[in-house]
Computed example of a mutant assay.
Amino acid sequence: MSGYYGYRSLGRFTERHRRALITELKIPNATVPSYSTLRRVMMGLDYTQLRLVFNQWAKLYA
């Protein structure tokens, strides 16, 4: 959704937008995840379930 592909690119995105992410997401300890953490989380996702939940959420704002 951000237009970034690959774990390292997503890691660079989080570093580039660090302050905004910490503020908007109320991240404790003022830290953002590294690309390896993003990778571990994404590898554990059920993308079928994510798609269903995302589509339900998107319908609320359509």
Rank of each mutant, 00 (worst) to 15 (best):
Y61F: 13
I27C: 04
L52E: 13
S2M: 07
I27V: 14
I22C: 03
Q56Y: 14
F54A: 11
L45Q: 09
L21C: 09
L38G: 02
N55V: 02
D46N: 15
N55A: 10
F13M: 11
L25E: 04
R51L: 12
K59H: 10
A62L: 08
K59Q: 06
S2E: 14
I27D: 02
E24Y: 08
V53C: 00
Y4Q: 07
V53F: 00
S36F: 05
P33W: 03
R16W: 11
R18K: 15
A58E: 06
T23G: 04
G3W: 10
A20V: 08
G3N: 11
L38Q: 06
K26F: 05
M1P: 08
G44E: 06
Q56A: 09
T14R: 04
S34C: 02
E15W: 07
A58S: 10
N55P: 01
V41R: 10
L52Q: 12
Y47L: 12
I27Y: 03
T37S: 04
V53R: 05
L50P: 06
P33D: 04
R39V: 09
L25I: 01
Y4H: 07
P28Y: 00
M43K: 10
R18N: 11
M42I: 01
L52G: 13
P33T: 04
A20N: 13
P28D: 08
S34R: 01
E15F: 00
Y47T: 12
G11A: 10
G6P: 04
Y5G: 08
L50V: 15
T48N: 13
L25T: 01
F54S: 10
G11R: 06
S9T: 10
I22P: 02
K59L: 05
Q56R: 12
Y4E: 12
G44S: 03
I27M: 09
L60A: 14
L60K: 15
T31Y: 05
L21G: 01
L45P: 00
V32C: 06
E24R: 02
G6Q: 09
A62E: 04
S36M: 09
P33H: 06
L52S: 11
G6Y: 14
M1Y: 10
Y47A: 00
S34E: 03
K59I: 01
E15Q: 13
R16Q: 11
T31M: 05
W57R: 13
V41I: 15
V41N: 00
G6S: 12
Y7I: 12
A58R: 01
V53Q: 01
T48M: 03
Q56V: 05
T14C: 14
G11V: 07
R8N: 10
R18S: 14
Y35V: 01
Y47F: 14
E15D: 12
A58Y: 06
K59C: 00
Q56C: 11
Q49F: 03
M43S: 07
P33Q: 06
R18Y: 03
W57T: 14
T14E: 01
R40H: 04
M42T: 02
L25C: 12
Q49R: 15
M1T: 13
R40K: 13
M1H: 11
Y61Q: 08
